[in-house]
Amino acid sequence: MARTVRAQLRDARITTARAAVDAVLGAFDRIEQPQDASRNIIMIGPGTGVAPFRGFLQERAAVGASGKSWLFFGNPHFHTDFLYQIEWQQALKRGQLHRLDVAFSRDQSDKVYVQHRLRRRGAELYAWLQDGAHVYVCGDAARMAKDVHAALRDIIVEHGRISAEDAEARLAELAAERRYARDVY
């Protein structure tokens, strides 16, 4: 985690606010559920990054969390790589997972990743954020976390009608409040 933050700090293109986000995010070793189970959660976990979210849903089911949950998952192929597919389907059916968006990058000619799905759901995502939702990102640090971060920033810019810098600041705030947490590697 620390290495990721340093690596990002070295990136000349990133803004000060962005560095702040990474610094705060880097302070956490792992992501944790909100204390308040009535909060909605947005889970972004492509590839093996989805694994901790199984536990999230199980925990929330066990405590009877009233908050809603929304998962974004991606991998190369629907047929072979839809990790824990049956569990997500069951969770949806039981009302333990409320929304699921998937991106299978290699099933069509143009590559589609989770960040594309985030952008497509921008208005609703922004509404969830405004409503106090927690956002968790887990998985690849090298590209995914950056792309997802950029997508979140752009969504806040577009739907919050604020500047990119303000949006970065907003994400930094969320991170400080532990409402935006990452476990990337």
Binding site: H79, T80, F82, Y84, Q85, I86, E87
Partner: peptide, 9 residues
């Protein structure tokens, strides 16, 4: 596939 937690093919 059931063991892989994937739905039937």
């Amino acid at each position: 596939r059931r063991q892989q937690k994937l739905e039937p093919s």
